[in-house]
Structure formats: structure tokens, C-alpha cells
């Protein structure tokens, strides 16, 4: 799980162009949206594509996305439970 969390942080930083962040800057329970990393709606779409492309998970329900993208911790658990690749 720790390796997955690190991988997720690296992917988030790279794919969402979070230039001012490093892996160490993102705590496992930091909020991804709102006051945490300050991600926006386009970032949310980008994360949905990332789940599909890297882990074979198709998110179609917006409410599900809201629950999944709470933090790296929550996201890592969801991927572990649902990944197809």
C-alpha cells in the first residue's frame, strides 16, 4: 500500500503539473480538493482518466468520484480493492 501511495503522489504531481509540490509535501490524508492540494474540476477529470489508464478502473458515477478522491489514503485503498490491472 505504501508503494502505491508513493506512486499515486508521483502521478498526481506529474500529471496535474503541481510544480511546487514534491512527494514529501503530500500527506496521505491531505485533502486533494478544496484547501488541500487545491485541485479543480479539470484535475478531477484527469484523475478519472488516470484511474482508467493505469489501474483499469472506470468511474462513471460522479458521487463515487467525490468519495474516492478525498485523499491519497482513500484513493489508494479504492484502487487496491478495485484495480483490474
Amino acid at each position: 500500500m505504501d508503494a502505491l501511495k508513493k506512486e499515486l503522489k508521483e502521478s498526481i504531481i506529474e500529471q496535474l503539473n503541481l510544480e511546487d509540490f514534491s512527494v514529501d509535501d503530500i500527506a496521505d490524508d491531505d485533502a486533494l480538493f478544496g484547501d488541500g492540494l487545491g485541485l479543480d474540476s479539470i484535475d478531477a477529470l484527469e484523475l478519472i482518466v488516470m484511474l482508467d489508464k493505469d489501474y483499469g478502473i472506470k468511474l462513471t458515477d460522479p458521487n463515487e468520484g467525490k468519495a474516492v478522491f478525498v485523499s491519497v489514503e482513500v484513493l489508494a485503498k479504492y484502487i487496491t480493492d478495485n484495480r483490474t490491472k
Partner: peptide, 9 residues
């Protein structure tokens, strides 16, 4: 086929 929303916008 994974169009990037961040590029598309």
C-alpha cells in the same frame, strides 16, 4: 485512447 482533459481544454 485516453484523451487528456487538461490538454483538451
Amino acid at each position: 485512447y485516453y484523451p487528456s482533459p487538461a490538454v483538451f481544454v
